[in-house]
Amino acid sequence: MNTRFTWFNATALAFGFSFLYLPILLLVIYSFNASKLVTVWAGFSTKWYGELLHNQAMLDAAWVTLRVAFLSATLSALLGTMAAYVLVRIGRFRGRSLFSGMIYSPLVMPDVIIGLSLLLLFIALGVPRGMMTVVLAHTTIGMCYAAVVVSSRLVSFDNSLEEAALDLGCSPLDAFFSVTLPIIAPSVVAGWLLAFTLSMDDLVIASFTTGPGATTLPIKIYSAIRLGVSPEINALSTILIAIVAVGVIAATLMQSRVTARGGDQG
């Protein structure tokens, strides 16, 4: 759309982005506060980061969360890519609308419902709760997000490339791995990342489906927040925000370089 950029647009952008970033900025600044009172500035200090490093329970929870996120994101990317392929490339089959319904509805389904229903399933099946049940739960949600991301890419790319490979004697499996997969790879990576962050982020579903010895970081942070604000949580938040920011910016730069290179060739 090409219309004049007005002062109204500028104000909207300024207001919108300050609304988005001011809370995060305050959180980060006050993680370097020497005072234990989170909202009263008492000089610069990094002592809360030091205390965090000695908080063994927090570190254990972080390690559990990372493993859960890695496993569930990998399974999600795999299942999500299959599901996307089914949705986009395989036309009609019996039960297709149920299938697409099951892909789309977890995207908006409240967490409490998914968490409760999965826990009741695990209990009914007699599965002991722990890290694996959280991985299964997160994979179920993550694969739907991955499927949506990958299918939007599959829709936009030219089917004739795959058909050409088949005409030239490729087996369907070969055609998928040597033609389709390289083209949709960025979206599979994006789906993996989305599933990974969703898993890292989830409190509600993990609270329902976890068991003894598998406390994830959000569960730990949540119980700490319920006791009140503390600079240690600010420090932990800052570390997590920094990791995400670096990751997302790097991914965006990479993506734009790939697009630019693709543009040169095309």
């Binding site: 959180l27 982020d201 959000p218 942070i221 949540y222 938040s237 997590l240 990751g247």
Partner: peptide, 10 residues
């Protein structure tokens, strides 16, 4: 992309 819980905490 940053934690939902952290954004609410902020």
């Amino acid at each position: 992309w940053t934690s939902f819980l952290i954004r609410v905490y902020a």
